[in-house]
């Protein structure tokens, strides 16, 4: 079955035909070419596929593209403002929050969602919020530091 859905991806409105069984992650990666969103565990645990659906972070591997009908999807490709990186992205570069980079898109999307909701999070709040974004390279210390620094920057 083919479905027609209307949605906005990173601010641009789209109307597309998709097979009803299309997962959101496959729609983003294969149909739109937005390969920044990664598939890791495939069961909603690792967070590499984190995107925002109407501002709330979700696992795009566990969502049907149909769920995004009428919604606004934000992926890692939509965080930077023109050429200007989001403070979270900038901080991940400067403070070593990214290593191999495979979890990074999910991390920065999750961190952006955090700072949107809690502009000045404590370390505990960061650890709690980022609980579902696995990273195998950093040991998390530099991710936490990056988010703290980004929060500080956003305050300025």
């Amino acid at each position: 079955m083919t479905l027609r859905i209307r949605l906005s991806v990173n601010g641009s409105a789209r109307e597309v035909l998709i097979p009803s069984s299309r997962r959101l992650i496959d729609f983003l990666r294969d149909d739109l070419g937005l390969t920044g969103t990664k598939e890791g565990c495939g069961v909603g645990v690792c967070g590499a596929c984190t995107v925002l659906l109407d501002g709330r972070m979700i696992s795009s591997c566990l969502a049907l593209a149909a769920f995004a009908d009428g919604a606004e999807v934000t992926t890692v490709e939509g965080l930077a403002d023109d050429e200007r990186l989001h403070p979270v992205q900038q901080a991940f570069i400067e403070y070593g929050g990214a290593q191999c980079g495979i979890c990074t898109p999910g991390q920065v999307v999750a961190a952006k969602a955090l700072l949107d909701e809690v502009p000045n999070p404590t370390e505990g709040e960061i650890r709690e919020w980022m609980l579902g974004n696995l990273c195998r390279c950093t040991g998390y210390y530099k991710i936490i530091e990056s988010i703290q620094k980004a929060a500080g920057h956003a305050r300025l």
Binding site: G44, T50, R56, M57, I58, S59, A110, G132
Partner: peptide
């Protein structure tokens, strides 16, 4: 329960 991403959905 699980993680925020799951709880959001």
């Amino acid at each position: 329960v699980a993680t925020l991403r799951i709880r959001n959905v």
